[in-house]
Simulated assay, not measured.
Amino acid sequence: MTARSRAQSFDAAAAQYAASRPAYPAALFDRVEEFACRRLAGARVADVGAGTGIASALLRERGADVIAVEPGEAMAGEFRQALPGVPIVRGDGNALPLATASRDLVTYAQSWQWTDPGRSVPEAMRVLRAGGALAIWWNTTAFDVPWIREQHRRIAHHCGVKPRSAVRPSDDDAVRLAGLTGLRVTRRQLRWSRAVSLDTHLANLGSRSAFLVLEEADRRAFFVDERERLARTFPHDEVTETYVVDLLVALRP
């Protein structure tokens, strides 16, 4: 299964994605402002790979002037329903449909991995104004929480993907892996959690590309077993999901 196929798979579960995916903590946007050396209020922001608008909504709440870029038709449809006043254009990070030097900040929430940094980094730098910043971030696995670590291993095994290392990369390695070598980059990791119902937790898992590319029977088999297992761990139907947001902010040279 190619990365392109996995990236395109989200359209099949756009409503599920919108209803179940986690947002991001307020502290993340405080750090974006700190590292980008400007307030979000009044900033012209392009949110790329905007999906159903989770990050775009939070950026707008901070006063940013947001335009979204999203390749998926169904994902863009969910975005328009959630944020009818925010413009959204179809496209992806490898060829941004935005004017040169038109944005103060370009953001990628949970979407940088679907780009080719050899193309997406120059595109971000082209779109940014002098003194602008590229901010990319992910909600990543909290491996120190035993049940989350074990669930991650079950998912990797069932979906036939390589489990992520429980050892997080150093700052230098994270910059290299993101394709940002040669730029002035600041990194911060922020821990946060949310309490959701078991149904929401399972829907969140099911909206991941690793599951979306599986046959329906394979998906169903995993979630039947996982529901029974988690119901024993969380008998009151409330699951506390813990995340570590990994943030990288690169300044335009």
Rank of each mutant, 00 (worst) to 15 (best):
A142M: 02
V196W: 01
H157T: 13
P163F: 04
L134Q: 02
G160S: 10
A142G: 01
L190P: 05
F143Q: 08
T141N: 03
S193Y: 02
F143R: 10
W138Y: 13
T181W: 06
L190W: 04
T140Y: 02
T140D: 13
V185W: 06
N139Q: 11
W192A: 01
C159N: 01
R188Y: 02
R184V: 08
L183V: 03
I148N: 06
I155F: 08
R176Q: 12
A178G: 03
P146H: 05
V185N: 00
P169L: 08
P169T: 06
R168N: 03
R149Q: 14
R154D: 08
V167R: 15
V185H: 01
T186F: 13
A142Q: 02
G182E: 06
P163G: 06
R188N: 04
G182Y: 12
L177S: 09
R153K: 06
P169M: 06
P163A: 07
R191S: 12
I136V: 14
S193V: 06
L134K: 04
R191K: 11
L180Q: 03
V185T: 06
S165R: 05
L180Y: 04
I136G: 04
A178C: 13
L134M: 05
Q189Y: 02
P163L: 07
V167S: 12
W138C: 06
D172Q: 11
R168I: 07
T186S: 15
A133S: 15
T140A: 14
